[in-house]
Design a protein around this nucleic acid. Structure first.
Lengths: 172, 172, 172, 172
DNA sequence: GATGAATGAGCTTTCATTCAT
DNA sequence: TATGAATGAAAGCTCATTCAT
């Protein structure tokens, strides 16, 4: 609370004017972090939705990396909250994850159908879930690797997406 | 420290007979957690090295999940340490990661060459790094999803590996 | 810290609102004790400066004894700090001592010249330094002797001062 | 206890084979420190007793300084014990002080009578007590001043002794 | 809205001491 | 004699929280 206060330029006692207690503050912050990330994803998505899917996937992946790089503090808080399991947060996290996945799947299915006409709903769903896997892979590796290595890993992730997408291109 | 002590069946003060302070205890624990995981990976590897690569990749992935599921507490400590950046640990983490990757790459290259004779060193390295991506993806998603969903994601990850490996199958 | 807090009528944790930690508290207390003693000496000095030097010396000596008797706790803290050598305090002590001696020498030189016109600066300086020796002698013996004996020693100290001053009396 | 043990080259637990507890250890150490100092004074005294009193006083004063300089650790323990008033030690200290003073007075009286035949017992006693004052003055100033300044103060102390002794020289 | 002052609860750490070996 | 291992008690300190102003 001291750190938060001093970063905002007020005294710790003043925080209690805005938030009932630390838990409430953190829960709201947690929801905001998730919401911001979702908003960012949506913004990116609507900006690039007219481009080919390959580029859309790439933009979303880079958008995720950029977002977490420029919001390091929030990301850290996010990881803490995901990890340290204050049980009240877990259900919220799961339902958020479901919502996020649902939105991503729905959005990407239509785009995939646009660019890969023969693809089935099931296949498009799997592709999206695999993309989510790569999103999470890169997210966690941001904590493990230095910049240089991380960039390589990101490009490997993009290669995998393209390979998956490639499986549907010519086939038809 | 209280929790650790009571789990070991001693009093908190006694911890200081074995470890100079909390930081040292955590750092050593951190190193042990990483070491244990590496050992586990090696054990699995040597157990299944005579099987086809597909199965080896699958065993390693499942081994990782099992290891972290059965060592939930250590895994949590590990994530805390990776995340909360006590800067002294970062260099150790990076060098460990490099060593782990190097071992995995070296080990898998020879196996890949055995099963996919036409594969180049470069290609085999990329395959391994992509596998590492999936390993990390699944690791992080253990924190995000419930059991059911996680299993689906794991099978998606395996599908991706097989797809990658499939790209080299025809060569033979 | 517990004792200090309970004497001030607050809880130990509250001390940390005013002082960063125990060392800072003690250092500031140390400086205050020295400052208080100096102030006390100055007060006495200006009160009696119109009296003959013999009486001034006597007043300063008794003032020292009274001050340390009525501030037993602070005096004890002072001795602890001087003795237990937290090295950061040593330089401060030395420079304070120099300042105190300089002030005493300067103040007493002019008075000695007033009452013993023939005395040289050098001689007056030596007399003052010898007086300081007696001041310190009595200070330390406050810890060694019981009241009765201490009083005797104080009167012996005064005799010595008078003897020293006597050496310059005839001059006039 | 840890520090004491490691300085002696044993483990803390082993101290309890020799001393019942810390208090006993410290009390015995305290008595030893005082005893050693007394022994040292006696040694010096018997070595120089054939010399003139001036030289004897000087030797005793320098002997005190040397002893405390070369036994810094014991001296510190001594000051701690004198100061921190574990009430059980106070009576012992007072009786030791009385004994030391008695011995010094008795010893010096005979020597003073030898060198200053006209001196009365009372006068000799006063001279000795004044010498004790100077001994204590120098002892305490060892804690206050740096080497250079301390030497000056020591020579001022010797001047005072000689001045006192001078008062009895010619008179006869 | 904001904060100075205070506090209870808890944490890490130190230290004298014990005791079986 | 000596020590490894353990501990109770207390110390210094942190931190979320409260409340009067």
């Amino acid at each position: 609370m001291d750190k938060i206060a001093s970063e905002v330029g007020i005294k710790p006692a003043s925080i209690y004017f805005f938030f009932k207690n630390k838990k409430v503050l953190f829960t709201e912050a947690f929801e905001k972090v998730l919401g911001d990330h979702l908003a960012q994803m949506k913004t990116i998505f609507y900006e690039v939705q007219d481009k080919p899917v390959e580029e859309i996937f790439s933009s979303l992946l880079h958008g995720t990396v950029d977002h977490h790089t420029t919001h390091a503090k929030e990301t850290n808080a996010y990881i803490s909250l995901v990890t340290s399991t204050p049980l009240e947060v877990k259900p919220f996290l799961h339902s958020f994850m479901e919502g996020f996945d649902a939105w991503l799947i729905e959005s990407l299915i239509s785009l995939l159908k646009r660019d890969r006409p023969g693809i089935t709903d099931k296949q498009a769903t799997v592709v999206t879930r695999q993309f989510i896997l790569l999103l999470d892979a890169v997210f966690w590796e941001m904590n493990l690797y230095e910049e240089e290595k991380l960039k390589e890993q990101i490009s490997h992730a993009l290669d995998m997406i393209n390979m998956i997408l490639g499986g549907f291109t010519d086939e038809k």
